[in-house]
Design a protein around this nucleic acid. Structure first.
Lengths: 167, 167
DNA sequence: GTCTATAATTTGATAGAC
DNA sequence: GTCTATCAAATTATAGAC
């Protein structure tokens, strides 16, 4: 993948996680990189194409990051918690697929599909650590991100999920 | 409050809960009611005014609905859970302030403030039923709504929150 | 209170030159 | 691959008639 293409995805990912699918534009991305919006369309014909590609990459990267955290000795739940905590602390960003899921049926089908695939993976992943509780744990993690962003207080996510450390 | 004003708020609330703040327009509301968008501006000068008013009313109504459920014998946690479950089942709608919180810092300050006030109320309310666990429980409820919408399966919210019944 | 009309801006997207 | 130029549509919002 070209540098330019991945640079576009980087900016798109950050903007979606900050404002949602309906809260970013091709021009915003182009301006930030220093190109024209027509050039963004060369790499991604439509907005749905771009968002779906970003969501797919987000899931793949998340899988890798989980693997790294686990290889370093973290439990699965702590790995998930740590990745979300870092995103919030560093840039105040939601889980990409959490905010996409919240925007619900206003999304193009291909984007909704990728968001759903991530959440399905999340449930299965957390079920490995806590059989039958993956869905409940992912719910708590996603909801905690959402509330933490509203509070704009770094300790909120930690407080909201601290009981998960015991699992 | 006039009928027209509340009718506008009704449509706005449904649209925000379905698509988010950045996913609805004055024209959409006007078309649905059968008036012109300029008339919507008569009642609410700006989009931020409208969304903030809707969020304030949402919280007031939620307080009332909780009181009703509790008067009918429901525990506080079951009351919250039931209200969210009903919204999902009937119209596939998110918690208004959950989706607003997810959209984060792209919102006008007055709208973000109302969303935050609702979530703060939620934590305090749930803390009464489970001291020290209100934030964790609200997180789980909000996250479960978000995941349930992505799954488009009515049983997901129930599964994701079933353990809360025991509290 | 609602309308017509319109302004000013933004948006997603395309055609075609280079 | 990126640009200029442009389009058609949508958006928030206002002025002023009725």
């Amino acid at each position: 993948m070209s540098d330019r293409r991945s640079a576009i995805m980087d900016v798109a990912e950050r903007l979606i996680r900050a404002h949602g699918y309906n809260g970013f534009s091709f021009r915003e991305i182009a301006d930030e990189i220093g190109i024209k919006s027509a050039s963004v369309h060369y790499h991604f014909p439509t907005k749905a194409d771009l968002a779906a590609a970003v969501a797919k990459r987000y899931r793949e990267r998340f899988v890798d990051a989980l693997g790294t955290a686990e290889a370093q000795g973290a439990g699965k739940i702590e790995a998930w918690r740590g990745l979300f905590q870092n995103a919030l602390n560093q840039d105040g960003l939601m889980c990409l697929c959490g905010i996409l899921a919240a925007e619900g049926n206003s999304l193009p089908a291909e984007v909704a599909k990728e968001a759903h695939a991530f959440l399905k993976f999340g449930v299965e992943s957390l079920d490995e650590a806590a059989p039958g509780r993956g869905l409940a744990i992912l719910s708590q993690l996603e909801g905690a991100m959402l509330i933490a962003r509203s509070a704009a207080d770094e300790s909120v996510f930690q407080d909201a999920t601290k009981e998960l450390s015991a699992l």
